[in-house]
Amino acid sequence: MDNTTLLFVVVMMAAVTYLPRMIPLVLLGEVKPPPFFKSFLRNIPFAVLGALIFPGIITSTGKPLSAMVGGLAAVILAFFRLNLIIVVFGGIGAVFLCEILF
């Protein structure tokens, strides 16, 4: 692929990424959806978070063991409602320790 084609591809990538982000937000705002759909939309954050976390987390560090240890550390810290930054660094620290030790 020459650079001009590649440039065009990147612009197309931007378009197909932006449109699904833009269309619902601009068009759905004034629509009052029926109750079922409204509750469906309210469930999305929790469902999408679940689906994003697992099983993707397993391959996030290169080693399933350290990834699971890091994930577990994050779950424990999050359970006690610690600040998000602490949860993030706690997860990173747990993976780092695990990679050093094993």
Binding site: F46, L49, G50, L52, I53, G56, I57, S60, T61, G62, S66, A67, G70, G71, A73, A74, V75, L77, A78, L82, L84, V87, V88, G90, G91, I92, A94, V95
Partner: peptide, 12 residues
């Protein structure tokens, strides 16, 4: 590599 996943967990 765990950072974003830890963040998702921290939110969820």
């Amino acid at each position: 590599g765990i950072a974003l996943y830890a963040m998702f967990i921290g939110i969820l």
